[in-house]
């Protein structure tokens, strides 16, 4: 589904990603872990098409298409969803209007008619209940005045509405208490399917207790330095990132 080959990216001339290789097939859940500043969020932003980053090398293909050639909206329309680490507040744009526009754009790209208003409202109600999102939140402006937990739940709710093929969760667990974390994880787990893949980016292992990954990768200084099964997450939790830093410091420096 997604093939990342030797991906290199820089921001303001500073190289952040130094050659990432990753293969993600449908139905798989990949966790990407790593210490702060290792390039996790940059990877998420590059996959979503954020223009602040300069691609300095490598390639990314999504279902055979050159992802890096696509505009952010084309990526979303093709089925990539990024759950933001810091969802943006958009005063004056109601959640409902925003979602209607987004859902219909994505449907249009798939050759579908705009959703009937009645169906749209039914779907909203159904998915909102899943994420324990209050109906009053729907009429409020996008993320405006939402608590940290509400913002993250809103991200997963949007994901449920947009029905992506590949979802990238960028530190969705950050700033969440355990109850909110469980709601988010339950929502994600309900969306797991043999057709859908996930990239779960996190600093901590605790999210992975709830969203159990098939693969765990450790990103350090812009490279994937270790890959394994879910047990790798536990190992990291037990030993901390210093273990990785010690092991790879020399190699990276060279």
């Amino acid at each position: 589904m997604l093939t990342i080959s030797n991906l290199q990216a820089a921001v303001e001339g500073k190289e952040i990603l130094k050659g990432i290789d990753l293969q993600i097939n449908k139905g798989e859940v990949h966790a990407i872990m790593g210490p702060n500043g290792s390039g996790k969020s940059t990877l998420a932003a590059v996959l979503a098409g954020r223009e602040d980053y300069e691609i300095t090398g490598g390639s990314v293909t999504f279902e055979g298409e050159d992802l890096l050639e696509m505009a952010p909206e084309e990526r979303a329309q093709a089925g990539i969803f990024l759950a933001f680490q810091y969802p943006v507040e958009i005063p004056g744009v109601s959640n409902t209007n925003f979602l209607r526009a987004a859902v219909n754009e994505v449907r249009k790209a798939r050759g579908l008619e705009p959703m009937e208003p009645k169906d749209f409202l039914t779907t909203i109600r159904e998915k909102a209940a899943l994420m324990e999102i209050d109906q009053t939140m729907m009429s409020r402006s996008v993320n405006e005045g939402f608590s940290g937990g509400e913002k993250k739940r809103n991200e997963i709710f949007q994901m449920a509405m947009l029905d992506p093929k590949l979802a990238v969760l960028d530190e969705t667990d950050s700033g969440l208490d355990i109850d909110a974390l469980k709601i988010v994880a339950t929502g994600v787990n309900k969306l797991r399917s043999p057709e859908r893949a996930f990239v779960v980016i996190t600093h901590y292992q605790r999210l992975l207790d709830h969203i159990v990954p098939d693969f765990v990768h450790v990103l350090y200084k812009g490279r994937i330095v270790k890959s394994g099964g879910k047990e790798l997450a536990h190992e990291l939790e037990a030993k901390g990132y210093d273990w990785i830093k010690a092991e790879f410091a020399e190699e990276i420096a060279s």
Binding site: A48, G49, A71, A76, I90, F98, A101, E105, Q158
Partner: peptide, 18 residues
């Protein structure tokens, strides 16, 4: 805000208009 809207599938023009 523009990127957020585009990342949800809205074209640049549409996002800007919104």
């Amino acid at each position: 805000a523009l990127f957020y809207l585009r990342a949800r599938g809205l074209s640049r023009e549409r996002a800007q208009a919104l």
